[in-house]
Design a protein around this nucleic acid. Sequence first.
DNA 1: CTTTTTTCGTTAGCCGCCTAACTATTCGCC
DNA 2: GGCGAATAGTTAGGCGGCTAACGAAAAAAG
Lengths: 190, 190
Amino acid sequence: MPLLMLKDLPRYECLLEASREFPDLDPSATEVFLHLLRAGDEAFRVVEAHLAQHEITQGGFSVLMALWGQCQREGRELPLSPAALAERTGVTRATMTGLVDTLERDGLVRRAPDREDRRMMTVELTPRGERKLLKLLPDHFRQMAWLMAPLSETERKTFVRLLTKLLRRAGENDGRPAPETAVAAVVAGR
Amino acid sequence: MPLLMLKDLPRYECLLEASREFPDLDPSATEVFLHLLRAGDEAFRVVEAHLAQHEITQGGFSVLMALWGQCQREGRELPLSPAALAERTGVTRATMTGLVDTLERDGLVRRAPDREDRRMMTVELTPRGERKLLKLLPDHFRQMAWLMAPLSETERKTFVRLLTKLLRRAGENDGRPAPETAVAAVVAGR
DNA sequence: CTTTTTTCGTTAGCCGCCTAACTATTCGCC
DNA sequence: GGCGAATAGTTAGGCGGCTAACGAAAAAAG
């Protein structure tokens, strides 16, 4: 999620001024939005760069976490199907094929055909994958803790509350026929 | 910035429990981090999907905004170099080449050699590009306003304050020799 | 005035993400 | 039992991000 607008966030006065030209521009909403995207991107890059030191990508890490979280909960080594992994990590099945390809090439994960349903595959952590995960997790946790260190416990609670509100709102968007505007209709009728 | 962890955010109790196994895991820090990335991603996807209805990508939009913001401020039509665009939008020059390629192919932007410095190019909005931007901006502004509607003005101020704290913290990361750990040295010595 | 260093834009190649289409298999309904 | 509908995984092709390397041009150093 790189930018969506400019690297240097606009000052509030500029937004206020622009809102005179564009009545639809809500200055405070825009300010929050831009800060949110920028902060999310920065936080993402910090962790991505850190994971890169362990020679693993963000996507690969997500898959390992999904597999490992699974085996933690279920006692031991319940492999998951690519479709289940895609669902849990929020990518398409096609994307998951590529991610598992890479992880399998690196020997962190193993594919095997499902015994009961011959359409399906199972994906599970290899011992090497588990070792790698256990080795990088403490660093990853420290990284998150370092990043959040400037926030007090109270601020963190508030932060999570606000983020949850937004998350819920964004979730309403699924299947929504676009905001009150004729554009969607025009595009659809193309 | 897709996932970095699981789509369904872990409950706080699970984080607490995990922190017993991993002393480095700060439950509240992790919770904020995961919510931030998820919320940023969701907000990004909402707007990206909306821009797609106008047949423009997030990257292309950023470039148009940079060019337009420039001509707004400078009176009229100061073109920018690819390097300046890259700097302002936070991508590499190589990426900017691709973005400008696409925009030029679509006729929204025009390249021309710089008269004074023969290494450089200039990129400027075409009339079509400006029309497109002016047409989609109101929708874009409405989208942001809709997304932030659940937050009161007070909450927005708080939100921006917290996000700014994080932004500053993430900025400290540039050039930092990784958090107190031996991993970086190991990798570097490889 | 030459030589070295820096800067510019581009290219090549990798990865992750998407959609659309395809094959194979299973499910559900007659 | 058989046949259409749904599902699993993959493939193909596109875009956007990155790094590394390049040639051309300008700037700095000598």
